[in-house]
Computed example of a mutant assay.
Amino acid sequence: MGILKHANDHMHYMGEMMRRTDTDPSKASGPAGEAFLRGSIVRCLFCKHGEECREWLEEGNTHCDAPAFCRNAGHFQNFRDNR
């Protein structure tokens, strides 16, 4: 897989995961919001569970926590708890 396709796929997965877990980065502005997004992107880009993520998203899960395999699961939860 080419690096650009990998990055594009993972950014799509991350956006969908955030939407489905009700993680709205617009709730944090300024440096806190930027740091949250930067951390989320790095975790997602280096994740080895892209296929599992795609399958989980295809199942149509919404309004729930991210699955355990998601490198951002705790990061998203902390963000939602502290907004």
Rank of each mutant, 00 (worst) to 15 (best):
M1K: 10
G2D: 14
G2F: 02
I3G: 03
L4W: 12
L4C: 06
K5E: 15
K5A: 14
H6S: 13
H6K: 14
A7R: 09
A7P: 00
A7G: 02
N8I: 09
N8L: 12
N8G: 13
H12C: 05
H12L: 12
M14T: 07
M14W: 10
G15H: 07
G15A: 09
G15F: 08
E16I: 04
M17C: 14
R20F: 06
R20S: 05
T21M: 02
D22V: 02
D22K: 10
T23P: 02
D24S: 04
D24A: 02
D24L: 01
P25Q: 04
K27Y: 01
A28P: 00
S29P: 01
G30R: 05
P31V: 13
P31C: 03
A32I: 09
A32M: 08
A32H: 05
A32E: 14
A32V: 10
E34V: 15
E34Y: 13
A35C: 00
A35T: 13
F36T: 03
L37E: 07
L37I: 15
R38A: 15
S40Y: 06
S40N: 10
S40V: 08
V42W: 09
V42D: 12
R43Q: 12
R43D: 11
C44N: 03
L45N: 06
F46P: 00
K48R: 12
K48H: 14
G50A: 11
G50K: 05
G50H: 06
G50F: 08
G50D: 11
C53R: 06
C53I: 10
C53P: 03
L57D: 05
E59G: 09
G60K: 03
G60S: 06
T62S: 10
H63A: 10
C64W: 00
D65W: 00
A66S: 12
P67R: 06
A68Y: 04
A68Q: 11
A68M: 05
A68F: 05
F69A: 04
F69R: 04
F69S: 06
C70G: 03
C70W: 03
R71V: 09
R71P: 08
N72V: 07
A73H: 07
G74W: 02
G74S: 11
H75I: 07
H75L: 10
Q77F: 04
Q77S: 11
N78L: 06
F79H: 07
F79Q: 00
R80Y: 01
R80F: 01
R80W: 04
D81S: 09
D81H: 02
N82Q: 12
N82S: 15
R83A: 02
